[in-house]
Structures are given as C-alpha cells and as structure tokens.
Amino acid sequence: MPPRLSFPPLSARIGQPTSVLSAGRSYATANYAPPNPAMAQYAPTQPPSHRAADSRKTQLHRTYLSLLRSTPLMLVFQHNNLKATEWTALRRELLMALSKLSGKGEVDEVASGIRVHVLRGAVFSAAMRVAEYYDPNGGKQHGTSEEAYEQTKKRVKHPLAPLFAGPVGVVVFPVFSPTHLKTVMDVMFPEGRAVKGMDPAAVSGLQKLVLLAARVDGHVATGKLGGGRVLDGSMVRWASGLPGFERLRGQLVGMLQSVGGAELVRALEAIPLGVVRTVDAHRKVLSGELEGEGEKKEEA
C-alpha cells in the first residue's frame, strides 16, 4: 500500500537537515492504513445507504420504514393548519384519555406505545413502497440500499399512495386493541360533537383533523411483512366499535357452552394443561439427571 504522504526519495533527502518531528511523522505514516473508501461513506453503526446517510430525508426514511414494519395499525389523517397550542392540547387530551384506560399505578404498555406523527409525505410513500414491495419480494438488503431503491422506484400503484400529499399525519398503535382504538377515535376523530369537558383549544384542533384511512397488519410480528391492508374511515369506525379481546373470548366461550360445545372448550383447555405437565415432567427428569451427574463428578 503506498504511503499517503509523498516523500521525496532517500537520495534527495540526504544532506538535508532532519528533525525529531519528521522522524515521528514517517513512523506514523508507516503504521497508517487508510480506510476502505466503500466503508468510509457511512457511520459504522449504520448500514450503507443509497442516499447520503446523514441527510434528514434518509433518517426519516429509516424511521418511517421501522414504523411501517413494527405497527399493526396505523391511522392516516390530514391536519389542516393546526396551531402549536392546539397540537399540545390535543396530545394532552389524548394522553389523559389513554391513562384512564388502566388502573392507578398500572403501566399500560399499549397506551404508552401510541404515537402521533406528522409525516413528510413523499418520504413516507417511498418508505411504504419499500415496506410493501421490497420486503416480501425477498429483499436481501436493508431498506435504504440501492437495491431497494432500484426495485421500488417505479411507481407501483399502492391504494394508500394518493393520500400522502399535503399535510398528513399518522397515529401508530403498537398492537391492535379495540378499546385503545376507540379512545383515540373518540378524542381525535369524534363522530359528531367532541367529548364533553375537553380543552377548547383541543376541540378547535380536532375540528381540523380529518381521518382519511388506516393501514392494518403488514408488520414483522405477524409474519405478514408487506401484506398491509387498507381500511377506509367507516371501516375504522366499525373496528373501534368492537369489544375488547377479553370480552370477545368470553363471548365465544359462552356461546360454545350454550350450544353444547362444552367438550370442545374442555379439549381446548386440556392442551395447555397437557403442555404444562409434559414440560414439568421433562424439567424434573432433567434436574434429576443433573443431580446424578454432579454426584458422579464428586465420586470421580
């Protein structure tokens, strides 16, 4: 590897005064290995990006991609000229309404994961194309790679694509929970009048919010990566009117018992019980073996 600093040949240097400093420099040059130019383009903690890694758009693209991959439910809304005070009031009301869902002292993981984001539409729709078309097509590289860009840059028509023009935001849920969805819908997109007792700033803010659509599923956890489905406003309202999962399960069990499916319920219950017994038995066997081994070692 050639040295980075060009030195005149030794013959030219003979007779010239030398100093301690120059000796030190030559020592440093000998040990210095310039970084691989391909590696130097990006921060060591981040994979190489097709675009400039330190630009805001690239970082937003990464953020949106991780949002799209990690959320099972995303409400898309339009915000028409909300003032900063109205945003803060609305967020405060939302936090308060969500905190009422759980008892005092309990930490509601779902509620704490609900976020309201205001989007850069074009960057978001680019990220959505990667999430919907690159990932399921066996995307080997990461979302900001050149390969991802090349595969998704053609305008594939996504049903949500026309939405991401103008002032658009999303509400992101960490899991699908009808009770939480209903709370968010009541606070931010009420049908008719707003909830009584709300901050007037929040009320004037929510008048300017318009629910457009929702994106459901398509995240990693369910194995439906890229399989996002699109709901319109009325379907979101219908989904928010569903009772919670606990009540739905209770209804199902009740219905089965009344119809005469008690045996089915028992059979379904028997499976987890059987698993617990088997695992417990296996644990006992394992611990017994381990004790036996310990004794043998002591004897040896």
């Binding site: 028409n80 000229n81 109205e86 103008g166």
Partner: peptide, 10 residues
C-alpha cells in the same frame, strides 16, 4: 379538494 381544505387559515 383535500389540499384546498388545508389552505383555509387556522
């Protein structure tokens, strides 16, 4: 029409 709604003042 949607973007026109965003042109109305706050």
């Amino acid at each position: 029409a949607r973007i026109f709604a965003a042109l109305l003042p706050p």
